[in-house]
Amino acid sequence: MRMQAKAAIAAALIAAPGLASADPDDDTLIVNGEIEMTTKTSAPEHMSDTYIDTIMSGWHFRSDETQALQMDDFDNSGMIFVDTGRAQWEQVEGSEGNSCASCHEDPADSMKGVRATYPKWDPEAEEVQTVAMQINDCRTENMGAEPYGYTSTEMANMEALIAVQSRGMPVDVKIDGPAREMWEKGKDLYYTRTGQLELSCANCHEDNYGNMIRADHLSQGQINGFPTYRLKNAKLNTVHARFKGCVRDTRAETYKPGSDAFVALELYVASRGNGLSVEGPSVRN
């Protein structure tokens, strides 16, 4: 039965090759010939009040050449920073004589699945925390070390090391219970039209995904691929740095990376990707 459904879908796709060039494509992302990524799936229930019924990874909106860079780790420049992140993981820093490895040992075991569920409510801290906040809590509380800058290279490296342990696992952030208030705040922000251009996240990434804006192909603004290696700036980019860039481009006063506003927005935007695979570190334009 399942086989038949797949065959029917394949037949339908073959029968409709002439999609307009600006539409997201129907390619399949398999990394290293083994990690099958879910890059399109049904929108989560909470998006039933939007026009979107299928959520899609930003990977579908990139050229074949850019897509190919994420299909093999030897071509994925983001993987270089995973290696650097691993060296940081082993590095003893701070007054307590600890490295990350002192407590968390092998990240392949201890960090598996972590990226998929963040941001999430931390009952001890009584706040919604991002992976970056957790990393810095560990550094200051358990290592006696200085926190990393929120969007620094070191932070991006460490986030990449943590994300890669969950590659292929479905994003599954919780939006109920004590996280709800921050989620609602993030949703408000997503629909707020900021700056002199009066643009919200939704104006481009909900109402106009698939359309070209100048030479850029608008995606759904999913963040399942972060941290992201961008060809545009040839470095690994954190999600809050990307949010900041987007808000700046509305000719607005930006929010600060790590601020409550951006933590809330990260929770909300992550939840719009519930069901897509964790892809970090991904490759984009």
Binding site: G195, R248, R251
Partner: peptide, 8 residues
């Protein structure tokens, strides 16, 4: 405007 900024 909401959060008016100085150009880009």
């Amino acid at each position: 405007f909401t959060r008016p900024g100085k150009a880009f």
